[in-house]
């Protein structure tokens, strides 16, 4: 099946700065891609090129099969795009703006009314429909932009920081909305909130210095964390040597670190070789060495750590 969104070798240079360097990936129906990267990594530039706002220096982007440069309007007709900062006409009311977008998008009267009702409802805009957008709070403005982006029920959605400026409840609502509509669409959201990746994304693409430095499932990405699957046990200091010996005998352990707790006990942290699962083995080793464990914990690794490692190396 042809991917709904396909970027190939997308490149943009501003003067001497290579803002986006041969970025390419494909997004299939049903995928929600988290587009990550530090500020200035080129996320917004890449998204602007994909949405047809900025012409690429090289490479191409296809939306539902239409080239954004050669068939701009056909491609844009199938795209919902939320620009960075959700710019919209401040003197218009959300009601007027949605009406305008519906007309520009060529929705017929009945469809426009139905869709408008749906997005107003989904994004809780009913209360502010008749207030000028410039008088609305940042959260409302963002949601008005989002409503305008999804009004025509596009197959491809590109959202530049859709939850920026929202409070935790609103963030949750927007993520729920995205998860619910994701089924039939290809969605790309840029963010630097990593919890968002866990909450909605099926895939994460990390950009640094204009290049893709990682393209993986969130779970795979997490495996790259230095503390992924690390197991820490607390035990009586008397048993230390016996447990260390037992752990050393295990095949999948890369190294063992040791820390003294204030209560006279000792903590041993075993780090597995990459990708290995050692919790069961550690427990079994302790059992067979007859070492009573006061505590045993395992870590999954934090995306933050992976993110920092990927984006500071570049």
């Amino acid at each position: 099946m042809q991917p709904l969104l396909e970027l190939t070798g997308l490149t943009k240079r501003f003067g001497s700065i290579l803002a986006v360097d041969r970025v390419g990936f494909a997004v299939a129906r049903g995928e929600v891609v988290g587009f990550l990267g530090p500020n200035g990594a080129g996320k917004t530039t890449a998204m602007r090129m994909t949405a047809g706002f900025l012409p690429p220096d090289a490479g191409s982007a296809r939306i539902a099969g239409f080239d954004i440069v050669d068939e701009t309007r056909a491609a844009q007709a199938r795209l919902g795009y939320l620009a960075e900062g959700a710019p919209s006409y401040g003197d218009m009311t959300p009601d007027a703006l949605l009406g305008f977008v519906a007309r520009v998008r060529g929705l017929d009267g009945a469809t426009a009314r139905r869709r408008r009702g749906e997005v107003v409802d989904r994004l809780s805009l009913a209360r502010v429909l008749d207030q000028p957008i410039e008088t609305l709070s940042k959260g409302f403005r963002r949601r008005v932009g989002l409503a305008a982006a999804i009004l025509h029920d596009p197959e491809v959605l590109i959202l530049d920081e859709p939850t920026d400026g929202l409070d935790p409840n609103q963030k949750h609502e927007v993520r729920t909305l995205l998860s619910e509509i994701a089924g039939g669409k290809a969605i790309v959201i840029s963010t630097h909130i990593l919890e968002e990746v866990d909450a909605v994304c099926t895939r994460a693409i990390v950009l640094a210095g204009g290049r893709i430095v990682a393209d993986a499932l969130p779970a795979e990405l997490r495996q790259q964390a230095p503390n992924h699957n690390r197991v820490t046990v607390a035990l009586d200091a008397d048993h230390r040597d016996r447990l260390i010996a037992a752990l050393r005998a295990l095949p999948n352990i890369a190294d063992i670190a040791e820390a003294h707790a204030r209560d006279g006990r000792i903590r041993l942290t075993a780090r597995p070789v990459r990708g290995a699962e050692i919790l069961g083995a550690v427990r079994a080793a302790a059992d067979s060495a007859e070492v009573p464990l006061d505590e045993i914990t395992t870590e999954h690794g934090r995306l933050d750590d992976v993110f920092r490692r990927l984006t500071t190396a570049a």
Partner: peptide, 14 residues
Amino acid sequence: KTGTIEFLMTLPVG
């Protein structure tokens, strides 16, 4: 200045 040009030019408008 207000950035709305990005909103306008990413609608299917020439």
